[in-house]
């Protein structure tokens, strides 16, 4: 890692060897998982098995698995476990994702992006 922030995100956490997250969404996905675990939504073993399976699938697909897409696998695993545990559904996630997409596109640069009616 160079001294320049690779994503142009000031305040991105780093230690002597480089950033610990490369983008805020990675930290959010990480934090959500720990919060749900802490709330008893799943066991840590269930989490590591889901994440391990996701990484194994990525490798079978031929992904490099060099660590650069780690949090993508993490997020996919979190979505799967959330559905498996009945915390949400695929349909809910897709609908909400679409809401955020439309809200973002309707929001000028520099303004906070919020969902309408919330």
């Amino acid at each position: 890692m160079t001294a320049e922030d690779p994503l142009g995100l000031p305040g991105l956490p780093r230690d002597a060897e480089g950033p610990v997250f490369r983008a805020p969404w990675e930290a959010q996905a990480f934090g959500m998982t720990l919060t749900l675990f802490d709330g008893g939504c799943f066991s840590w073993k269930e989490w590591t098995q889901t994440l391990g399976a996701e990484i194994a699938m990525a490798r079978e697909r031929g992904d490099a698995d060099d660590g650069s897409r780690y949090y993508e696998y993490w997020l996919a695993a979190l979505e799967k476990l959330a559905v498996a545990k009945g915390l949400t559904t695929r349909g809910e996630m897709l609908a909400r994702k679409d809401e955020w997409d439309r809200a973002a596109r309707a929001t000028p640069h520099g303004k906070p992006i919020v969902l309408p009616g919330r």
């Binding site: 983008a23 959010q28 959500m32 973002a104 919330r118």
Partner: peptide, 11 residues
């Protein structure tokens, strides 16, 4: 980013 926001806001 959209998926993280979607999941977080649902939760």
């Amino acid at each position: 980013e959209l998926r993280v926001r979607a999941l977080e806001s649902l939760l």
